[in-house]
Each structure stands twice: as C-alpha cells, then as structure tokens.
C-alpha cells in the first residue's frame, strides 16, 4: 500500500467517525441512562414507578410513582400546543400568503429572535409578568400554574411551528392558488380551503416538532409551574413536569440510591416521548417530500 492511499484511508475514517458522532452519542446516552436506572428493577421494584405519588424523600415511605410527573408534562405540553397552534399556523399563513415583502423582512428576524431567547430569561418574564396576570385574570391563589408554564412554552413552540408551516405553505404549487382564484374564490377561501389543506402534512409535522421542543423544555417550566407533583388535569393547579423534577432533584440526591435510579427512569420516559414525537414528524415530512430522502 502506498503512503498516499494510507493517508486517504485515514482521512476517510476520520470523516466517518465525525459523521457518526451523533449516533454514537445517542446510543451512549441511552446506555448510560439504562445502566443507572437498572438497580431500581430489583430494589425497590419497577412496579413502584406506576404509583400515583412522587415523594422520593421521606422518613415514613418513599414513593417513586412517575404518574404525577408524566401527567404534569403531558398537561403542560398539550396546553402549550393548543395555545401555539392558532398563533403558529395563522402567523405562517400571514407571512407566506398575506404579508408584503417588506412586512416579511421585518417579521422573520423577530421570529428567529423569539426562537433564540434563553429559556431562563423567558422564565423571568413568566414569573414577573405572566404569573401575576394568570393569578389576577382567573382569581387564583397563586399564578404558578400549569397554564402559566404552558403560555411560556407556547412562546417557544410558536417559532418552530411558524417557520416549518411557512415552508409547507410555500411549497404548495401556485397552480392550486390560481385554480382556486380563477373559480371566483376569495383570497381567504383560497387559503383555508386549498392552500392549508394541501400543506396540512407539513403543518402537522411542525406541530409535532413544536411539541417535541416543549416536552423537553426545563428551565422556564421549573420557574413558573409551582412544582407540585400531583396528578391533575386542571390547568389552574400547580404541577411538576418530568424535566423540572430531574433538574431540581438531581443535585441533592444520594448517589446510587433508589431515588437516584428513579430519576433516570424519568429521563428514559422523557427521552422516549421526544423520540416518538420527532420520529413521527420526521416520517410525515419525509412522506410528503419536505425533507431529502
């Protein structure tokens, strides 16, 4: 083998390993999560995860039920999605179909900025502005509720939903629009009856991706949802999400304890949820040719 070929081969392997890095990291993280979570199966037993009380530090009886954390995450995520969908989609329609070129030039950078706001900063805003607002409007004892967290998370989901929906709407062939207008449909009718349905798959995918982002978000929800681990589907109660639980408790947990292992189960559940959301949206986008195969 010549020196040249050896060199080419080394470079190739180097590039290959860089390219595969993301796969390796994902696998390592999964492996690591399972390794740390494993002891929980024998002691105190995996059935404990299905209980409805999360009380990992107690002198009487420690409880590791994930249910309140899962319902907390699901409640906040669903609420946030419900709030974000109309703004995200209508905003996308506006930017792609209604706005003039100038308006678009102003709007789009602001959407990028909104997407880039650090979540802890958003959390401040939530504490100082949104929480008191929620408290006053609904006459509650505290403004730190699932709804407050959902509003903040909606701010984070909106840019994702908006920009991907906008791409989907833009990729609808103009011939559909022409056909509809030529049939005497108004602009609004054309948008809602032809363009949005034709872009629906991409819009659905954008919502799923937005949800993926929201489920995994930690800082802002920890700051404003009140962190009470109770099973509740009432948006006006305090809840605690899976992410907030890990972030809040990981720092002070006894290394190797049942509590420690249970937090890794929380991580596994969380990772599976985001994995499924991303997979589904990826599939949808791929099926309709919006990303390269």
């Amino acid at each position: 083998m010549t020196k040249q070929r050896l060199k080419a081969r080394i470079i190739k392997y180097f590039l290959q390993s860089c390219g595969s890095l993301s796969i390796i990291i994902v696998l390592l993280i999964f492996l690591f999560l399972f390794k740390e979570a494993l002891p929980f199966i024998s002691e105190p037993g995996i059935g404990g995860l299905f209980h409805s009380v999360w009380n990992p530090v107690s002198f009487q009886k420690e409880e590791f039920g994930l249910l309140p954390l899962i319902t907390g995450s699901v409640l906040v995520t669903l609420l946030a999605t419900l709030i974000a969908i109309p703004f995200g989609i209508i905003g996308a329609v506006y930017i792609s179909e209604v706005a003039t070129a100038k308006e678009r030039e102003v709007l789009k950078p602001f959407i990028e900025i909104l997407a880039g706001i650090p979540s802890v900063v958003l959390g401040f805003f939530g504490l100082i502005v949104v929480a008191p607002l929620v408290k006053d409007i609904f006459g509650l004892n505290t403004g730190l509720t699932a709804l407050t967290g959902a509003v903040l998370l909606a701010f984070m989901a909106i840019p994702t939903i908006m920009s991907i929906s906008e791409d989907a709407i833009k990729s609808v062939p103009i011939i559909y629009k022409e056909a509809s207008l030529a049939l005497g449909a108004s602009r609004i009718e054309t948008i809602w009856k032809v363009i949005v349905p034709a872009a629906l798959s991409g819009i659905v995918a954008s919502v799923m991706l937005g949800m993926g982002r929201v489920v995994g978000e930690t800082m802002a929800v920890m700051m404003v949802t009140g962190n009470a681990p109770v099973v509740s589907f009432n948006p006006f109660t305090s809840v605690r999400t899976m992410t907030a639980t890990i972030a809040a408790e990981m720092g002070e947990v006894t290394f190797g304890s049942s509590h420690y292992a249970s937090l890794f189960w929380v991580g596994i559940v969380l990772m599976l949820m985001t994995f499924v959301l991303n997979l589904v949206s990826y599939r949808v986008l791929k099926k309709y040719g919006m990303i390269d195969k």
Binding site: P173, I175, Y176, E178, A179, S180, A182, V194, P197, A198
Partner: peptide, 8 residues
Amino acid sequence: FQKSNPFP
C-alpha cells in the same frame, strides 16, 4: 391553465 391543476 396550461398545466392541468386539479386540487388534491
């Protein structure tokens, strides 16, 4: 139109 454009 030149290119047939039925809605999906």
